[in-house]
């Protein structure tokens, strides 16, 4: 994704060439790009017999998705020993309840 955010559109061969450090096989790069395309992270257009890939989302949106995906399991399992949240936002989102509490706090502020 980093490579394609820097420069796009790119073919599989071009991405492979830019991955100098790890030197993956052509088929590995092709499979990976195909998976990212199927996940909706990349878009592609046909250029002759090859595909040209480009990001379907920007870096900020990608990071938001990573955060969302990372936090979802914590929501499912319950935070337990993993996190200590400031407040249980979901449990406290009843608007009538919130309005009552806001009145209570405002009353307290007036009295001080």
């Amino acid at each position: 994704m980093d490579i394609l955010w820097e420069e796009h559109p790119l073919s599989v061969r071009e991405v492979q060439t830019l991955l100098r450090r790890t030197k993956p096989a052509y088929t590995t790069v092709m499979t990976t790009l195909d998976r990212l395309y199927k996940k909706g992270l990349l878009a592609r257009t046909k250029n002759g017999i090859a595909f040209l890939y480009q990001p379907a989302i920007d870096r900020a949106e990608y990071q938001r998705r990573v955060v969302h995906a990372a936090l979802a399991p914590l929501l499912e399992q319950g935070a337990g020993p993993v996190l200590a949240a400031f407040v249980d936002v979901a449990a406290g989102s009843d608007t009538e309840n919130l309005a009552q509490l806001e009145r209570l706090i405002a009353e307290r502020r007036r009295r001080r």
Binding site: L71, A85, D88, V89, A90, A91, N97, L101
Partner: peptide, 11 residues
């Protein structure tokens, strides 16, 4: 939002 182990009334 991010709610952990919903506990109605806790807030």
């Amino acid at each position: 939002a991010v709610g952990f182990t919903p506990m109605p009334g806790a807030l």
